[in-house]
Simulated assay, not measured.
Amino acid sequence: MATHKISTTWKGNMQFESSNPGGSLQIDVAEDLGGNSNGLRPKALMLSALAGCSGLDVASLIKKMRLEVSDFNIETEGFLTDTEPAVYEKVIVSYNFSGNNLNEEKLAHAVDLSVEKYCGVMHMFRSFAEIEIKINFNK
């Protein structure tokens, strides 16, 4: 069974440094919550993990399908519950492709493969949130 081990160290006040096999990052909260705004927010990191997981899948499929894409980005928007603890109840994931010769059908298929089959983070999110997928093509 594969495992991931992350080391997270308190750096004082509300700041932590979290090390992962690919590097490290700073975690903190906003000043109005007692932090110094010197790091990423934990819940927002979950959205980054979702976009990163699916983005890696789609980028791999763009390469395998030999598709022409000049720019590709993913925007995620998470909607939190009003109850404590606040958790994501809905997430909108927007895939944005730019290029002069986009194959929209194949790109949509690549997104679908990531969303439905490959992205483990997407599957984890589905256990607690409604997921809405949008695909935008800009020529």
Rank of each mutant, 00 (worst) to 15 (best):
N100Q: 13
K117N: 07
K139F: 00
E17W: 00
Y95L: 00
K134D: 10
K11H: 01
E132D: 15
G52Q: 07
G78H: 08
T8G: 01
F125E: 09
N13Q: 04
I133P: 14
P85W: 06
K63L: 07
G52Y: 08
N73S: 13
S98I: 01
V93A: 08
E116R: 09
K90A: 05
K64Y: 06
S24L: 05
K139R: 14
L102F: 01
M14W: 01
N13P: 00
P21H: 00
E130Q: 15
E68C: 00
R126E: 14
N101R: 11
K63C: 01
E130I: 08
N38L: 07
I74F: 02
E31S: 05
W10P: 11
A108H: 06
G35N: 12
M65R: 14
M46P: 12
M1T: 03
E31F: 00
Q26C: 05
A30G: 09
N136R: 09
T81W: 09
G39L: 10
L107I: 06
L113S: 05
E84P: 01
V58D: 08
A49Q: 04
T8P: 09
I6K: 01
V111Y: 13
A110F: 02
T3G: 06
A44G: 11
V115K: 11
G22V: 14
L107Q: 11
P42R: 10
L102Q: 04
A49S: 15
D57C: 11
L102G: 06
S48Y: 07
L40V: 13
E116C: 00
R126S: 15
W10N: 03
A108M: 04
K117F: 05
L56P: 00
R126G: 13
A110M: 06
V111C: 11
S19Q: 12
K63Q: 13
L67C: 03
